[in-house]
Design a protein around this nucleic acid. Sequence first.
DNA 1: TAGATTTATACGCGATCACGTATATTGCCA
DNA 2: TGGCAATATACGTGATCGCGTATAAATCTA
Lengths: 84, 84
Amino acid sequence: MTDQIARNEKQLGAILRRARRQADLTQETLGSRIHLRQATVSRLEAGEPAVQLSTLMAALSALDLELVVRPRSKSSATEIADLF
Amino acid sequence: MTDQIARNEKQLGAILRRARRQADLTQETLGSRIHLRQATVSRLEAGEPAVQLSTLMAALSALDLELVVRPRSKSSATEIADLF
DNA sequence: TAGATTTATACGCGATCACGTATATTGCCA
DNA sequence: TGGCAATATACGTGATCGCGTATAAATCTA
């Protein structure tokens, strides 16, 4: 799996969904490993903005993924504006 | 700035704080750019787990950073366990 | 297609968000 | 050291978290 870039919650959720499926896990089994409900995993993967950081980090660790923070490769003004 | 790895909220907060200082911004000015209070930026940088995803993504975009999700370079069982 | 699995959504609940506003605390520099 | 800037923390408020539980909707699969 190549590195995947996330600039908003939706992209992040999509990445997590792909990773979970690749690991052949259901939302239920993933959630049980990190003490989160299936419904919460669903919200995370849907890219809901108000999901909590702890939920994200727990899912990442259960999927054996890590986060890298780096300067944006090429600026994309529209995406920044889209946040508001 | 080299890529920085975050496996938990604290590491993520620390990275954001470094990036903000490097950009020579105060929590106040950063917050005003993304419609977040100085107090909220403070919580984010402190690594509080219940901060919301939207808060993180907004800060990243204001600092012109992006998130990369990738497989963990080397597994660290203790850190995973530390989540609970 | 029927049945089973998986995912999305709902309700009530206690906890906690980010908010505005304000203040305590800390850090820095003349 | 004194004073200011920067950061951390507090209170009340409305919104929303994740929870347990349950069900509706979507998606496989035999």
